[in-house]
Design a protein around this nucleic acid. Structure first.
Lengths: 334, 334
DNA sequence: CTGAAAGCGCTAACAA
DNA sequence: TTGTTAGCGCTTTCAG
C-alpha cells in the first residue's frame, strides 16, 4: 500500500491536454470541447484520480465542509440532544454535498477554523472563545440550542422558559396543586431556563412550590432515579411531576411503577424533548417538543448560503416549544 | 465579518523573524532560541493566527483527520450500531487529537480520500468501491462490523454466527423446544449470520425450527412489532424468542406484555447488542454483547499508527460475542 | 540556531 | 476553446 499519488498532471498527460483543461472538467466549467471532456473523463476513471482537496481549497479559497463542535462531556453521546443535532447537521450536509468535520471538545484543543467553511456549535458552554476566534477570522458560525445575548453571533434555540411554563400550565390546568420538578443540569442554559419558566408559571397561578419539590437532576437517568426516590419519601407527596427531559421522565416513571404507583392515575408526568422513546415506554409520555433536528438543519443551510458568498444578517431565532399531549397526565383527584 | 487572513508571513513580520522560524514554532521543532520562540508566540497570540490546515497538509503531505463513512439509510441515526461506532471513533479522535470527517453515503457521492489520513468504514454494504478506491490511492482503511473475505482490507467484527449460537444454546439449555427468532435485515451480514448461527445450533441440538418460527425483521421496531404479533397468532406458540437486536427484543416484549403474556414466565426473550436500554425496559433483557464502541476505538488507533508511517500487517479481527444474563429468560415449563 | 528558496497540487486570471 | 503562468500558505531541504 505505497502512496501512489495520481495528480492532475498525470491525468493531463494521459488525456493529451493541459492541466487547466483537466481542472475545468473537474469543476464542470462548460467551455471544454466534448472531445476533450471525454478524453479527460476517461483518464480520470482509468487512473482513479481524485483531486487533492487540500490543494483545491488552498488554490480556490473555498472550503466545502462544515464543522460541528460538540461539548465533550461524558455521556454526550447518550443524550438525545447531541444525537439530534448530529442527525440534523448530517442530513443537511448530505443534501448539500458538504463534508462534516466533527469536533468534540471541552474548550481546550479548539477546532482550527481554517479547516472548514462554517461552523455549527452545539451549545457554547465551554466554547465561547472558540466561537470568537472563528468569527474573528471570518468563518461563519451558528450556535444551536443556546440563546447568546452577550455577543454578535447567529443562534437558533428554543424558548426554554416558555417550555417550562407550558409544562406547569398544563399540569395545573388539570387541577394539580402539588407539582414537583426534576431539573436538568442547572449549569446549562436549558436546565436553568426550564426551571425558571416552571417556577414563574406556578407563581403566576398562585401554586406554591416548596423547596423540596425542586429536585436537582443533571439530565442523567441516574439523577432522575435518585430524584424520583426522593419524591416518594416526601411527606406531602406531589400528584404531578415535570422532568426537564424525557429520559429523566421515563426513569422517574419506572421508579414510580416499581413502587406500585400508577401513572397517570396517582402521579402525572410531563417530560421535555419529544424523544421517540416517549412512545415506547410503559405509558406514552406527554412532553414538550423542541425541534432540535430542524434547528441543526436550518443552521447548516444558512451557513451554506454564507459560504457561497451571500452576505446575510445575523440570525437570532427563538423557536416556540410545543406541548405534545399523550397518556402520562390525568386530572388531579384532589 | 470580512475575510481577514492572517498568514504565517504576518506573524514572521511582527516577530521579526523568517517564516521558517515561525513554522518551526508551530511545529514544536526544538531548534529555536528561547528569545525567538517567545517573540513568535506573542505574535501568534496577538494576531490570533491559526495556521491554514489545507496549506499544511499540502506542504507536508500529512493529514491528521480520519474519515468515518456511514451507510446512509434512513433511521441509521436511531440505530444503536451507528451511534456506538460514532462514539468509538469520536472518543479515539478526541484522545489522539485527530479531527473526524463524517461522511454519510449510500455509495454515490463517495468520500474523497485525499480529504483524510485514514478511513473507518461502518459496514460496507454499498460502499465496496469506495473502499477499493481509497486503498488504491494509499489511504489506510479499516472496516468495522463486517467480515470482509473477498479482498484485502483491515476489518474488525464480531462473530455473528457464534452470537446466534450462543442465544440458541442458552435458550435450549433452559429446556425450551419451541424457539422462534425475529431476524435482522437478512441482506446485512449481521442479520444473515445471526440467523445462520441460531439455525445451526438448533439443528445440532435436534430442536426443530418450523418455517413459521423464523420471522423476518429488518432491525426496525416496527418490523419487530409485526413479527411479535405474528408469533401470537401461531397455533403452536413458541416459549422462547431470539431477536437479532435489543431494540427488536424490547418491542416484542412490549407486544407480549400488552397481550397479557408474562416475561419471562410465558415467553423467554434474548436480544442482541447489549444496548443500555436493555436495563430500562419493563424487564432487564438477557442479550448478546458486541463491543461496537471498542471495535471502533481500536480501528482508529490502528489507523493512527499507519498514518504516522508505521507499516503494519493487515488486521483481520473477529471478536467473540458474549452472553449477558439478565431477567428475560426462564426455564421452560414444558 | 536561522533563513532562502523550491515546491506540495490545484485554481484563476490572462493570453492566444 | 485552450494553454501559460503566477500564486494559495505552508513545510522542508540545504546552506550558512
Amino acid at each position: 500500500m505505497e502512496k501512489k499519488k495520481v495528480s492532475i498532471s498525470d491525468v493531463a498527460q494521459r488525456a493529451g491536454v493541459s492541466i487547466t483543461t483537466v481542472s475545468r472538467v473537474i469543476n464542470n466549467v462548460p467551455t471544454v470541447s466534448k472531445k476533450n471532456r471525454i478524453k479527460v473523463e476517461e483518464a480520470i476513471a482509468h487512473l482513479h484520480f481524485q483531486p487533492d482537496v487540500s490543494a483545491q481549497r488552498l488554490a480556490s479559497g473555498v472550503n466545502n465542509s462544515i464543522g460541528l463542535v460538540i461539548p465533550g462531556y461524558p455521556g454526550i453521546f447518550h443524550s438525545f440532544y447531541a444525537i439530534e443535532v448530529i442527525r440534523g447537521v448530517g442530513h443537511s450536509c448530505e443534501t448539500l454535498q458538504l463534508d462534516m468535520v466533527f469536533h468534540i471538545t471541552n474548550g481546550l484543543n479548539p477546532l482550527n477554523s481554517t479547516h472548514v467553511g462554517g461552523i455549527v456549535f452545539a451549545d457554547v458552554i465551554e466554547n465561547r472563545r472558540q466561537v470568537e476566534a472563528a468569527l474573528k477570522n471570518g468563518t461563519p458560525c451558528f450556535v444551536v440550542n443556546h440563546k447568546v445575548e452577550d455577543f454578535e453571533v447567529n443562534y437558533i434555540a428554543v424558548d426554554n422558559v416558555l417550555g417550562g411554563e407550558l409544562a406547569g400550565d398544563y399540569l395545573s390546568g388539570f387541577g394539580h396543586k402539588k407539582i414537583a420538578t426534576i431539573t436538568g443540569d442547572i449549569n446549562t442554559q436549558s436546565g436553568f431556563q426550564r426551571l425558571q419558566g416552571f417556577t414563574k408559571i406556578l407563581k403566576k397561578k398562585q401554586i406554591s412550590l416548596p423547596e423540596d419539590y425542586v429536585l436537582k437532576g443533571d439530565y442523567s437517568r441516574r439523577s432522575a432515579r435518585l430524584a424520583a426516590e426522593k419524591i416518594l419519601t416526601l411527606a406531602d407527596r406531589p400528584t404531578a411531576v415535570f422532568a426537564a427531559s424525557d429520559d429523566m421522565a421515563l426513569e422517574a416513571i419506572a421508579v414510580f411503577l416499581e413502587n406500585g404507583i400508577k401513572i397517570p392515575e396517582d402521579i402525572s408526568v410531563v417530560g421535555f424533548d419529544d424523544n421517540p422513546i416517549c412512545l415506547y415506554g410503559p405509558v406514552a409520555l406527554t412532553t414538550i417538543k423542541q425541534p432540535l433536528f430542524e434547528m441543526a438543519k436550518d443552521a447548516v443551510h444558512y451557513l451554506y448560503e454564507m459560504m457561497k458568498g451571500k452576505t446575510m444578517p445575523t440570525q437570532k431565532i427563538l423557536l416556540k416549544p410545543e406541548l405534545i399531549v399523550r397518556d402520562s397526565c390525568a386530572p388531579s383527584k384532589g
